[in-house]
Design a protein around this nucleic acid. Structure first.
Length: 465
RNA sequence: GGCGCCGUACCCAAGCGGUAAGGGAGAGGUCUGCAAAACCUUUAUGCAUCGGUUCGAAUCCGAUCGGCGCCUCCA
């Protein structure tokens, strides 16, 4: 049974889709004004693991993710460059999906760019105006928080006191109350993009898009809505207010928020010089799979301190998995099954499932995998492992791959290559003649070509790095 | 100041009342012509500190110290 921590209640709750079979999930996507950074991807990787786990339960899943392709930053930069916003955002949207693919993040079922949903947003604002939840001030439209008594439930706003001297009002528009938030912004100048609406020309405020696009595609009540913790307030509280004011129904059953990624113990920021995009890391030669593993090593509810040392550690862990799978694949085994290994494999599988069910405890799931690797390695050295055991272990790793997508591919590693085979044969010839100088020289040649050699009792095997 | 998360070995980390998973790094060893890989041993009578509850606590309660985040666009 899957348990998830629900921000709404602050506790772990058993999750099932409201109708028992179809999960309706919305995840906050990127604002495409620049390349996404690894902090962003920590969240997307967690959501990907959730997505994969939900699918494994046999539920039907409709997963919607937005692309915020209109906001202040986008407008400012596109104006600076003298291009329209779509011309500006298109390459970053494309880059985002390329990066996601690099990290083996599955594509959501429905992608909703904000600018494709203007009519839905306009409709929402009209309803809010009609019901008295929204008002016009100047040429902009605001949400009237005083009309929505439950406001701030998600962030437990009622328990908070405002910091003395804290800036309450983030923008310069007039409002009835400082805490009211903007639904529809009147253009400030000629350059700003705008859309016509019955209540005036303008553009949508940020919070509006998620409500409109989520409800349009998933209905009034979502099963799951994800994002990172920084979205809890005000973004998600505002979404709740807008949506529930219109529908009168609970907007979301499970709010699931990913904690922040820190870099070297501090929040990532460009000024601190600890800011990495995925592309930065790839350029430095890091393996995307190691990055993915590093991003899920710590369960989503806990802050993850990203360090280069940690990333190297993940790479080493990954190499261990790769070495093991390679060893298992190339071993010569007898038919049959060793009962000890069989039960070890079954128990690793159970532990893995239980770990993911337990609020996506990836650290524990990974632990179960490594325990099995050690057990199987010992069995391999003691010649106890049998053909059926191997099949079951490979089956398990297939499951791990479906769920976590961190299993290194073997195909590219062990594929036949006549030229390499010939070099290996020549080296073994030299070894037989005890011409170790020659043997080592050939090995060096192979290493230079990215080939690792392992001499075992069953002969020499090689693989690509 | 308020709200929230957290403090487990050199580093990362699981642990959810029954006696400290796992990964990385280091050291020593087995195997090997040498490597590589693998395996073995080794690194927490102790889980920030101090009290309390309990037959029993890293796990529950209280206090203290420390770190991080949010309260403002932000994954």
């Amino acid at each position: 049974m899957l348990k998830l921590t629900n921000t709404l209640t602050g506790t772990q709750e058993a999750f099932t889709p409201s109708d028992g079979e179809h999960v309706r999930m919305y995840t906050c996507g990127p604002t495409v004004y620049d390349y996404a950074h690894i902090g962003n991807f920590r969240t997307y990787v967690f959501e990907d693991v959730l997505r994969r786990h939900l699918l494994s339960k046999g539920w039907k899943l409709t997963h919607v993710m937005n692309i915020t392709d209109i906001d202040d930053k986008i407008i400012r930069r596109s104006v600076e460059l003298g291009v329209d916003i779509h011309t500006y955002t298109a390459p970053f949207t494309k880059a985002f999906f390329e990066d996601s693919t690099t990290l083996k993040i599955q594509r959501p079922d429905i992608i909703t760019p904000a600018t494709d949903y203007i009519p839905e947003m306009v409709e929402l604002v009209e309803k809010l105006l009609a019901a008295g939840y929204a008002y016009r001030e100047g040429d902009s439209i605001y949400f009237r928080i005083s009309r929505f008594p439950n406001y701030g439930r998600l962030s437990r706003l009622d328990k908070r006191e405002l910091k003395i001297g804290a800036r309450i009002d983030a923008d310069e528009y007039e409002k009835e109350e400082p805490r009211d938030f903007v639904l529809w912004k009147a253009p400030k100048d000629d350059q700003e993009p705008r859309w016509d609406a019955p209540f005036g020309t303008g553009r949508p405020g940020w919070h509006l898009e998620c409500s409109a696009m989520a409800m349009k595609n998933l209905g009034a009540t979502l099963d799951i809505h994800c994002g990172a913790v920084d979205n809890i307030f005000p973004h998600h509280d505002n979404e709740i207010a807008q949506s529930e004011a219109v529908t009168g129904k609970p907007f979301v059953r499970f709010w699931v928020h990913g904690e922040f990624l820190l870099v070297e113990g501090e929040k990532m920021s460009k000024s601190k010089g600890n800011f990495y995009t995925l592309r930065d890391l790839i350029e430095r030669g890091h393996d995307p799979l190691a990055i993915r593993l590093e991003l899920m090593r710590v369960p989503y509810r806990k802050q993850l301190n990203f360090t280069m040392e940690g990333l190297r550690g993940s790479q080493s862990s990954l190499d261990r998995v790769k070495d093991f799978l390679f060893r298992l694949k190339s071993a010569t085994l007898e038919a049959g099954s060793d009962p000890g290994i069989a039960s070890g494999t079954a128990s690793a599988r159970n532990q893995f499932e239980a770990a993911l069910d337990d609020d996506l405890n990836t650290a524990q799931g990974l632990g179960a995998m490594f325990e099995l690797i050690r057990e199987a390695n010992i069995a391999l050295s003691e010649n106890r492992l049998r053909e059926d055991n191997r099949r079951e272990i490979f089956d398990f790793f297939q499951t791990i791959e479906q769920r976590l997508a961190i299993v290194p591919p073997l195909e590219s590693v062990v594929q036949g290559d006549q030229e390499i085979d010939a070099l290996v044969a020549r080296r073994n010839e030299a070894r037989r003649n005890r011409d170790f100088a020659m043997s080592d020289q050939i090995r060096k040649e192979l290493v230079d070509r990215g080939i690792l050699i392992e001499d075992t009792k069953e002969g020499t095997r090689w693989r690509r790095k």
